[in-house]
Amino acid sequence: KRLVQILVWIIRGTPLMLQLIIIFYGPGLWLHKTVWSGNETGRITATVVAFVINYACYFSVIFRGGIEGVPAGQREAGQVLGMTKHQIFFKITLLQMIKRVVPPMSNEIITLVKDTSLARIIAAYELTFAGAAFMKSDGLTWPLFYTGVFYLIFIGILTLLFGYIERKLDYFK
Protein backbone atom coordinates (compact mmCIF):
# COMPACT_ATOMS: atom_id res chain seq x y z
CA LYS A 1 0.00 0.00 0.00
CA ARG A 2 2.78 2.44 0.91
CA LEU A 3 4.59 1.76 -2.38
CA VAL A 4 1.45 2.62 -4.37
CA GLN A 5 1.02 5.83 -2.34
CA ILE A 6 4.61 6.82 -3.14
CA LEU A 7 4.12 6.06 -6.84
CA VAL A 8 0.91 8.12 -6.94
CA TRP A 9 2.68 10.97 -5.14
CA ILE A 10 5.56 10.91 -7.66
CA ILE A 11 3.28 10.76 -10.71
CA ARG A 12 0.96 13.50 -9.44
CA GLY A 13 3.92 15.64 -8.38
CA THR A 14 5.83 15.63 -11.67
CA PRO A 15 4.81 17.20 -14.99
CA LEU A 16 3.18 14.98 -17.60
CA MET A 17 5.64 16.31 -20.19
CA LEU A 18 8.55 14.98 -18.13
CA GLN A 19 6.78 11.63 -17.73
CA LEU A 20 6.33 11.38 -21.51
CA ILE A 21 10.04 12.01 -22.04
CA ILE A 22 11.07 9.51 -19.36
CA ILE A 23 8.71 6.78 -20.59
CA PHE A 24 9.77 7.19 -24.22
CA TYR A 25 13.51 7.74 -23.81
CA GLY A 26 14.16 6.25 -20.34
CA PRO A 27 14.10 2.53 -21.13
CA GLY A 28 16.65 3.00 -23.92
CA LEU A 29 18.97 4.85 -21.56
CA TRP A 30 18.58 2.37 -18.69
CA LEU A 31 18.35 -0.89 -20.63
CA HIS A 32 20.60 0.16 -23.53
CA LYS A 33 18.03 -1.08 -26.01
CA THR A 34 14.97 0.39 -27.67
CA VAL A 35 11.70 -0.58 -26.05
CA TRP A 36 9.51 1.56 -28.30
CA SER A 37 10.04 1.49 -32.02
CA GLY A 38 11.23 4.80 -33.41
CA ASN A 39 8.28 5.02 -35.77
CA GLU A 40 4.90 6.66 -35.13
CA THR A 41 3.39 3.50 -33.61
CA GLY A 42 6.09 3.35 -30.94
CA ARG A 43 5.67 7.02 -30.11
CA ILE A 44 1.89 6.70 -29.83
CA THR A 45 2.28 3.56 -27.68
CA ALA A 46 4.66 5.38 -25.33
CA THR A 47 2.22 8.30 -25.19
CA VAL A 48 -0.69 6.01 -24.32
CA VAL A 49 1.36 4.30 -21.59
CA ALA A 50 2.36 7.66 -20.10
CA PHE A 51 -1.21 8.97 -20.16
CA VAL A 52 -2.65 5.77 -18.67
CA ILE A 53 -0.15 5.79 -15.79
CA ASN A 54 -0.60 9.52 -15.15
CA TYR A 55 -4.37 9.59 -15.23
CA ALA A 56 -4.72 6.27 -13.36
CA CYS A 57 -2.98 7.95 -10.43
CA TYR A 58 -5.35 10.92 -10.54
CA PHE A 59 -8.42 8.69 -10.93
CA SER A 60 -7.31 6.49 -8.03
CA VAL A 61 -7.36 9.50 -5.71
CA ILE A 62 -10.75 10.62 -7.07
CA PHE A 63 -12.25 7.16 -6.54
CA ARG A 64 -10.69 6.81 -3.08
CA GLY A 65 -12.21 10.14 -2.10
CA GLY A 66 -15.56 9.11 -3.52
CA ILE A 67 -15.60 5.87 -1.58
CA GLU A 68 -14.46 7.53 1.64
CA GLY A 69 -17.11 10.24 1.11
CA VAL A 70 -19.95 7.76 1.57
CA PRO A 71 -21.05 8.04 5.21
CA ALA A 72 -20.16 5.09 7.45
CA GLY A 73 -23.80 4.93 8.51
CA GLN A 74 -24.69 3.73 5.02
CA ARG A 75 -22.41 0.71 5.38
CA GLU A 76 -23.66 0.08 8.88
CA ALA A 77 -27.25 0.14 7.61
CA GLY A 78 -26.29 -2.53 5.07
CA GLN A 79 -24.79 -4.67 7.81
CA VAL A 80 -27.95 -4.32 9.92
CA LEU A 81 -29.94 -5.55 6.90
CA GLY A 82 -27.68 -8.63 6.78
CA MET A 83 -25.83 -7.73 3.59
CA THR A 84 -22.36 -9.09 2.88
CA LYS A 85 -19.40 -6.73 2.36
CA HIS A 86 -19.64 -7.42 -1.36
CA GLN A 87 -23.35 -6.51 -1.43
CA ILE A 88 -22.78 -3.41 0.69
CA PHE A 89 -20.08 -2.19 -1.68
CA PHE A 90 -21.95 -2.82 -4.94
CA LYS A 91 -25.48 -1.95 -3.82
CA ILE A 92 -24.81 0.95 -1.44
CA THR A 93 -21.30 2.39 -1.55
CA LEU A 94 -20.63 2.18 -5.30
CA LEU A 95 -23.95 3.76 -6.28
CA GLN A 96 -23.37 6.75 -4.01
CA MET A 97 -19.69 6.99 -4.92
CA ILE A 98 -20.43 7.26 -8.65
CA LYS A 99 -22.50 10.40 -8.14
CA ARG A 100 -19.72 11.97 -6.09
CA VAL A 101 -16.92 11.23 -8.57
CA VAL A 102 -18.58 12.28 -11.85
CA PRO A 103 -17.73 16.02 -11.57
CA PRO A 104 -14.00 15.58 -10.76
CA MET A 105 -13.77 12.65 -13.17
CA SER A 106 -15.28 14.70 -16.00
CA ASN A 107 -12.78 17.45 -15.23
CA GLU A 108 -9.89 14.99 -15.50
CA ILE A 109 -11.20 13.55 -18.79
CA ILE A 110 -11.45 17.05 -20.27
CA THR A 111 -7.91 17.77 -19.09
CA LEU A 112 -6.78 14.48 -20.63
CA VAL A 113 -8.18 15.51 -24.02
CA LYS A 114 -6.35 18.83 -23.86
CA ASP A 115 -3.15 17.19 -22.60
CA THR A 116 -2.93 15.07 -25.75
CA SER A 117 -1.20 18.07 -27.32
CA LEU A 118 1.79 17.29 -25.08
CA ALA A 119 2.49 14.18 -27.15
CA ARG A 120 4.35 16.37 -29.61
CA ILE A 121 7.23 16.55 -27.11
CA ILE A 122 8.24 13.05 -28.27
CA ALA A 123 7.28 13.89 -31.89
CA ALA A 124 4.05 11.89 -31.84
CA TYR A 125 1.84 13.09 -34.65
CA GLU A 126 -1.27 14.54 -32.98
CA LEU A 127 -3.70 17.36 -33.74
CA THR A 128 -1.62 20.32 -32.56
CA PHE A 129 1.49 18.87 -34.20
CA ALA A 130 -0.41 18.61 -37.50
CA GLY A 131 -1.63 22.21 -37.22
CA ALA A 132 1.88 23.47 -36.50
CA ALA A 133 3.27 21.47 -39.43
CA PHE A 134 0.76 23.16 -41.75
CA MET A 135 1.76 26.52 -40.34
CA LYS A 136 5.47 25.88 -40.95
CA SER A 137 5.10 24.42 -44.44
CA ASP A 138 2.68 26.96 -45.89
CA GLY A 139 3.17 29.90 -43.56
CA LEU A 140 -0.50 29.85 -42.60
CA THR A 141 -1.88 30.37 -39.11
CA TRP A 142 -5.47 29.27 -39.75
CA PRO A 143 -4.71 25.55 -39.14
CA LEU A 144 -3.86 26.36 -35.52
CA PHE A 145 -7.06 28.39 -35.24
CA TYR A 146 -9.05 25.40 -36.52
CA THR A 147 -7.17 23.14 -34.12
CA GLY A 148 -8.31 25.36 -31.24
CA VAL A 149 -11.87 25.36 -32.55
CA PHE A 150 -11.81 21.55 -32.79
CA TYR A 151 -10.65 21.25 -29.17
CA LEU A 152 -13.28 23.77 -28.07
CA ILE A 153 -16.10 21.92 -29.86
CA PHE A 154 -14.94 18.52 -28.58
CA ILE A 155 -14.63 19.81 -25.00
CA GLY A 156 -18.08 21.44 -25.37
CA ILE A 157 -19.58 18.09 -26.37
CA LEU A 158 -17.89 16.38 -23.41
CA THR A 159 -19.14 19.11 -21.07
CA LEU A 160 -22.71 18.62 -22.30
CA LEU A 161 -22.37 14.84 -21.98
CA PHE A 162 -21.07 14.99 -18.42
CA GLY A 163 -23.73 17.57 -17.50
CA TYR A 164 -26.36 15.12 -18.75
CA ILE A 165 -24.78 12.29 -16.74
CA GLU A 166 -24.73 14.45 -13.59
CA ARG A 167 -28.42 15.32 -14.03
CA LYS A 168 -29.28 11.62 -14.47
CA LEU A 169 -27.42 10.81 -11.24
CA ASP A 170 -29.39 13.38 -9.21
CA TYR A 171 -31.55 10.60 -7.75
CA PHE A 172 -29.99 11.01 -4.27
CA LYS A 173 -31.45 14.47 -3.59
Rank of each mutant, 00 (worst) to 15 (best):
25 Y>L: 12
36 W>A: 09
28 G>M: 11
72 A>T: 12
47 T>P: 08
86 H>L: 14
105 M>C: 07
109 I>T: 08
47 T>M: 15
107 N>F: 12
96 Q>R: 11
79 Q>P: 06
38 G>S: 15
67 I>F: 09
87 Q>K: 09
95 L>C: 07
95 L>I: 08
85 K>T: 14
55 Y>D: 03
43 R>Y: 01
77 A>V: 03
61 V>W: 03
43 R>V: 01
100 R>A: 14
105 M>P: 05
38 G>L: 14
91 K>E: 14
53 I>G: 07
29 L>D: 00
83 M>N: 02
34 T>W: 05
53 I>R: 05
105 M>F: 10
62 I>R: 01
85 K>I: 08
50 A>V: 00
61 V>K: 15
35 V>S: 10
73 G>D: 11
93 T>A: 12
106 S>E: 10
42 G>L: 09
86 H>W: 14
37 S>I: 00
44 I>H: 04
54 N>K: 05
26 G>H: 02
48 V>R: 11
70 V>Q: 11
111 T>S: 15
74 Q>T: 00
48 V>G: 10
81 L>G: 06
50 A>R: 00
94 L>D: 06
30 W>L: 15
55 Y>F: 14
35 V>W: 12
25 Y>G: 01
83 M>Q: 07
33 K>P: 04
84 T>P: 11
99 K>T: 08
65 G>C: 09
101 V>I: 10
37 S>C: 00
39 N>L: 06
108 E>F: 00
52 V>G: 09
24 F>M: 13
86 H>R: 13
81 L>W: 04
102 V>R: 13
81 L>C: 10
98 I>L: 15
55 Y>L: 10
92 I>K: 07
87 Q>S: 11
23 I>Q: 00
88 I>V: 14
55 Y>P: 04
88 I>C: 13
31 L>M: 14
68 E>V: 10
70 V>T: 04
59 F>T: 05
53 I>S: 08
78 G>A: 03
96 Q>C: 09
89 F>P: 10
76 E>K: 00
105 M>L: 13
88 I>R: 15
41 T>M: 13
64 R>T: 06
51 F>W: 06
104 P>W: 00
27 P>M: 07
24 F>H: 05
87 Q>V: 04
92 I>V: 14
35 V>T: 12
37 S>E: 02
